[in-house]
Design a protein around this nucleic acid. Structure first.
Lengths: 110, 110
DNA sequence: AAACTTAATCGTAATATTGCAATATACAAA
DNA sequence: TTTGTATATTGCAATATTACGATTAAGTTT
């Protein structure tokens, strides 16, 4: 066991879970925060910002990239990472639709 | 290792990561979907909706509850689960602020 | 009380994640 | 070409997650 049963859920559910999972670690939230803070999409000094070793940061960046939350452009021997708006829009839409859905109900029971 | 270094990040980063992590599984997205779909906050037939055994569902519910995303009220020998608006508002706010932040920049570089 | 229902917990196996040292790769500069 | 810089990959240990059968706990019904 230990393997998620993705095939029993809808594509949308799997996709949202994938995005949420990628954000399910404080270091990766911190990376997103940092990419938003710096004006240009500054490169590898993400490593300096975080209290983690370079290989660990590299791994977190890879996961964010795999989930489609960020993208990286090669610039000389450095790599420039930045946020992928589309993925974040998906998430925003999910939560907005939940919010409006909850609004309509006005507290069902609990 | 394998243990997350939560103490090196801000409370907000840890809290957001905790919420995102709780949603980082398709079954738990499906549970949220279901709780939104049914009008009253119907109880344990969540188990019937999902392709997972009862103990597994119970475990997922526990995680959603621990993260503060849902709450459960005892009703006879059944338990009535429903969504906690506050937690979802936090998440919505996070993504909305990201969206507006990205809007301002109009594609920094990548 | 005995039988049934609902949901949590325990125990355990399979797998995934986190973190880092060591190493590799790729480009730049000297 | 050697040296330096930036990032990725590998390998591994510690820990966490996922899933479920078996059992337990608590309420309901008969």
């Amino acid at each position: 066991m230990g393997a998620t049963k993705t095939d029993h859920f809808t594509d949308r559910q799997n996709q949202l879970a994938l995005l949420a999972k990628a954000l399910g670690h404080p270091a990766r939230i911190a990376i997103i925060d940092y990419l938003l803070k710096v004006d240009a999409c500054i490169c590898g000094d993400i490593v300096n910002e975080l209290p983690l070793a370079q290989p660990t940061v590299s791994q977190h960046l890879k996961e964010l990239k795999n989930a489609g939350l960020i993208q990286g452009n090669i610039e000389g021997n450095a790599i420039c990472y930045c946020i992928n708006e589309n993925a974040l829009n998906d998430l925003q839409q999910f939560f907005t639709s939940i919010a409006t859905s909850l609004e309509k109900k006005k507290s069902g029971c609990c």
